[in-house]
Amino acid sequence: MADLLDDRFFANPHAYYRHWREEGPVRRVHFGDGVERWLILGYEEARAALADPRLCKDIDGLEAAIDRKYDGKWVRPRTHDGLRHMLNADPPTHTRLRKAVSQAFTARRVAALRPVIESTAHELLDAMAEHDEVDLLQAFAVPLPVTVICHLLDVDIEDRATFREWTKALVGTLDPDTDRFKAHAEMVSFLRKMLQRKRIDPGEDMLSALVTDADARLDEGELIGTALLLLVAGHETTVNLIGNGTLALLRNRPWLDRLCADPTLIPAAVEEFLRYDGPVNMATFRFTTEPITVGNTVIPAGEIVLVALAAANRDPRHFPTPHTLNPSANHTAHLAFGHGLHYCVGAPLARLESQIAFTALLQRFPNIELAVPDSHLHWYPNAVIHGLKTLPVHLRN
């Protein structure tokens, strides 16, 4: 019998993972639809799976595997618009797409964004200082990375609020309902028009570079898919890294006070936030092209597989005190950004944004506190993204 992943699971996945790991590093699960997936829980097993070429991500093969599981009744978008990107591809297509995107995330280009990140963070904190209570997500954790990724991609400022609403619809639910499909279609239409403008009048931004890069050979579907991936993944990870990390500190006050007293600890703290309660719960879907063995379990060919990054990052076989927040520990070997070919290309930007965000936030509001009981916090029911819906805080200026 497969375990059900429902709202209770998403509210506290670590409690489930802790129990399941006692029975082995792999488990069968479903999302209430009766269709089973395999969930890999152990650190070593997850790391190996993320780099295993027998676990594929090609969108056509994945859809065929899902269709077989759903007996042809799977509800999904009518086209692949917005789905053809490097997270849904294997080599050599993945290699070509990743190379085109990687040019925007070199160390030099990321470092050049520091002034934009710092000025945006301080502007947001200035606005927050006018209130005693705010939703930290809407006031700070969301607009900071949204502004940065839109700057990188040259998205007009008046479009950013709409873009965020689309993203919330895409990541805020497990159910492939009409609202999600509508948001997806509207976002694809928006990006198609934007790319057309870049062809006519290219600038210095990332989308212009993709459109004009003859070596990358991105077709229309790949351009739209890559643009959508950059816009959504380019900020969603950081939003929830800031949100989850702040909550971890509010639940562990001595560490919040230590970081306020010594901001040089913040880069290490960001790594620990990534390990302890990272922004990505599970890596995106894979499927087996042949039988693979995980622990003592054989997963047959044609099966859907999820790698639970959050579970791997609390595996006691790899981390001595996995359920304790400890920014002074050397936890840089976490899998929060994945591993192997699909390691997050935007990881350097997410790290820089988060380091700047926590430094500025804690310097400005060292007495920040939760404004609601912990039990009143709610999490998005999403298999991939692990993030809060709101984070009400008292700033205690």
Rank of each mutant, 00 (worst) to 15 (best):
D3T: 04
D7S: 09
F9N: 00
F10S: 01
A11E: 05
Y16N: 03
E22F: 00
E23N: 03
P25G: 02
V29F: 00
D33V: 01
G34Q: 02
G34A: 01
R37D: 02
E44K: 07
L55N: 04
K57L: 05
I59N: 06
D60H: 14
D60N: 12
L62T: 03
D67I: 12
K69Y: 01
D71R: 15
V75H: 12
P77Y: 07
P77E: 11
T79N: 12
H80A: 12
G82H: 07
N88K: 11
T95Q: 12
R98N: 10
K99H: 12
A100D: 08
V101C: 09
S102N: 15
T106E: 11
A107M: 11
A112I: 09
P115L: 10
E118D: 13
T120V: 04
A121C: 03
A121D: 01
E123M: 04
L125Q: 02
A127H: 01
M128G: 01
A129H: 01
A129K: 01
H131K: 11
D135F: 01
L136T: 01
L137C: 03
A139H: 00
V146P: 05
T147H: 07
T147I: 02
V148W: 02
I149Y: 00
H151F: 03
L152F: 00
V155P: 07
V155T: 07
I157T: 11
R160G: 04
E165R: 14
W166I: 04
W166E: 06
T167P: 13
T173D: 14
T173M: 13
K182L: 13
K182H: 11
A185N: 14
F190E: 06
L195K: 06
L195Y: 00
R197K: 10
K198Y: 04
D201M: 08
P202N: 05
D205K: 06
A214M: 05
A216W: 01
E222G: 05
L230D: 02
V232I: 15
E236L: 04
T237V: 10
T238P: 10
N240W: 02
L241C: 04
L247I: 05
L247D: 09
N252D: 13
R253F: 01
W255R: 05
L259H: 03
D262Y: 07
P263F: 08
I266Q: 11
A268M: 11
Y276G: 13
Y276R: 11
N281A: 15
A283G: 15
F285D: 15
F287A: 12
T288I: 14
P291L: 14
T293S: 14
A301K: 15
L306Y: 08
R314G: 13
P316E: 12
P316N: 10
H318L: 08
F319G: 08
H323F: 09
T324N: 04
T324D: 14
T324M: 10
L325Y: 04
H331R: 09
H331G: 06
T332R: 15
H339R: 07
H342Q: 06
Y343Q: 10
G346T: 06
P348S: 09
A357P: 13
R364W: 01
F365K: 07
N367S: 13
A371M: 10
V372M: 10
L377D: 12
Y380S: 12
P381S: 13
A383P: 09
K389P: 07
T390V: 14
T390F: 04
L391I: 06
V393P: 13
R396G: 06
R396Y: 00
